[in-house]
Protein backbone atom coordinates (compact mmCIF):
# COMPACT_ATOMS: atom_id res chain seq x y z
CA UNK A 1 0.00 0.00 0.00
CA UNK A 2 1.41 3.39 -0.98
CA UNK A 3 2.45 5.95 1.62
CA UNK A 4 0.78 9.30 1.67
CA UNK A 5 1.58 12.60 3.38
CA UNK A 6 -1.24 13.61 5.68
CA UNK A 7 -1.28 17.38 6.40
CA UNK A 8 -3.46 18.75 9.13
CA UNK A 9 -4.05 22.47 9.86
CA UNK A 10 -5.20 23.10 13.37
CA UNK A 11 -5.26 25.82 16.01
CA UNK A 12 -1.94 26.41 17.73
CA UNK A 13 -3.38 25.30 21.03
CA UNK A 14 -4.42 21.88 19.64
CA UNK A 15 -1.15 21.02 17.90
CA UNK A 16 0.53 19.30 20.82
CA UNK A 17 -2.36 17.05 21.84
CA UNK A 18 -3.11 16.02 18.25
CA UNK A 19 0.55 15.38 17.47
CA UNK A 20 1.05 13.28 20.61
CA UNK A 21 -2.08 11.22 19.95
CA UNK A 22 -1.15 10.50 16.31
CA UNK A 23 2.41 9.53 17.15
CA UNK A 24 1.28 7.23 19.95
CA UNK A 25 -1.37 5.47 17.86
CA UNK A 26 0.38 5.28 14.47
CA UNK A 27 3.98 4.99 15.66
CA UNK A 28 5.20 7.44 13.06
CA UNK A 29 7.16 10.70 13.29
CA UNK A 30 4.98 13.78 13.39
CA UNK A 31 6.22 17.18 12.09
CA UNK A 32 4.69 20.33 13.51
CA UNK A 33 5.18 23.71 11.81
CA UNK A 34 3.95 27.15 12.83
CA UNK A 35 2.06 29.00 10.11
CA UNK A 36 0.41 32.38 9.68
CA UNK A 37 -2.63 32.05 7.49
CA UNK A 38 -4.17 35.03 5.73
CA UNK A 39 -7.46 33.27 5.63
CA UNK A 40 -11.01 34.11 4.73
CA UNK A 41 -12.90 32.03 7.24
CA UNK A 42 -12.70 33.57 10.68
CA UNK A 43 -15.52 31.58 12.21
CA UNK A 44 -13.21 29.76 14.57
CA UNK A 45 -10.59 32.49 14.87
CA UNK A 46 -9.60 33.90 18.22
CA UNK A 47 -10.13 37.60 18.91
CA UNK A 48 -6.43 38.31 18.43
CA UNK A 49 -6.59 36.58 15.02
CA UNK A 50 -9.64 38.61 14.04
CA UNK A 51 -7.77 41.79 14.97
CA UNK A 52 -4.80 41.07 12.74
CA UNK A 53 -6.78 38.99 10.22
CA UNK A 54 -3.95 36.43 10.46
CA UNK A 55 -4.77 32.97 11.66
CA UNK A 56 -2.16 31.51 13.90
CA UNK A 57 -2.13 27.89 12.75
CA UNK A 58 0.00 24.76 13.11
CA UNK A 59 0.60 22.43 10.23
CA UNK A 60 1.03 18.80 11.36
CA UNK A 61 2.51 16.43 8.84
CA UNK A 62 3.07 12.75 8.95
CA UNK A 63 3.75 10.08 6.35
CA UNK A 64 1.65 6.95 6.73
CA UNK A 65 0.22 4.15 4.64
CA UNK A 66 -2.87 5.23 2.77
CA UNK A 67 -4.93 2.65 4.65
CA UNK A 68 -4.15 4.29 7.99
CA UNK A 69 -5.88 7.54 7.04
CA UNK A 70 -9.29 6.50 8.45
CA UNK A 71 -7.62 5.55 11.74
CA UNK A 72 -5.76 8.88 11.84
CA UNK A 73 -8.98 10.79 11.20
CA UNK A 74 -10.67 8.69 13.85
CA UNK A 75 -8.00 9.67 16.35
CA UNK A 76 -8.51 13.31 15.38
CA UNK A 77 -12.19 12.97 16.06
CA UNK A 78 -11.57 11.49 19.50
CA UNK A 79 -8.93 13.98 20.66
CA UNK A 80 -10.36 16.91 22.59
CA UNK A 81 -9.82 20.03 20.49
CA UNK A 82 -10.63 23.69 20.68
CA UNK A 83 -11.19 24.27 17.00
CA UNK A 84 -11.78 22.65 13.65
CA UNK A 85 -8.99 20.76 11.89
CA UNK A 86 -8.59 20.89 8.13
CA UNK A 87 -6.74 18.06 6.40
CA UNK A 88 -5.59 16.81 3.07
CA UNK A 89 -3.31 14.08 1.74
CA UNK A 90 -0.72 14.13 -0.96
CA UNK A 91 1.06 11.31 -2.59
CA UNK A 92 4.59 10.45 -1.55
CA UNK A 93 6.39 9.50 -4.73
CA UNK A 94 9.66 8.47 -3.22
CA UNK A 95 11.25 8.52 0.20
CA UNK A 96 14.58 7.65 1.75
CA UNK A 97 17.24 8.57 4.29
CA UNK A 98 20.75 9.70 3.60
CA UNK A 99 23.10 9.31 6.55
Amino acid sequence: MADVLLTLHCAAADAEVIGEALRAALQTPVHVRAEAVLGLDFSDATTAERVTARLDRRAIELVLPEGDIPEALGILGRVRRSGAVRWYTSAVLERGRVA
Binding site: F42, T47, R50, V51, T52, A53
Partner: peptide
Protein backbone atom coordinates in the same frame (compact mmCIF):
# COMPACT_ATOMS: atom_id res chain seq x y z
CA UNK B 1 -14.80 41.75 2.15
CA UNK B 2 -14.74 38.92 4.67
CA UNK B 3 -12.13 40.51 6.96
CA UNK B 4 -13.40 40.71 10.53
CA UNK B 5 -14.73 44.07 11.72
CA UNK B 6 -12.04 44.13 14.39
CA UNK B 7 -9.46 43.93 11.65
CA UNK B 8 -10.91 47.00 9.94
CA UNK B 9 -10.63 48.90 13.19
CA UNK B 10 -7.08 47.61 13.66
Amino acid sequence: DQSPRLHHVF
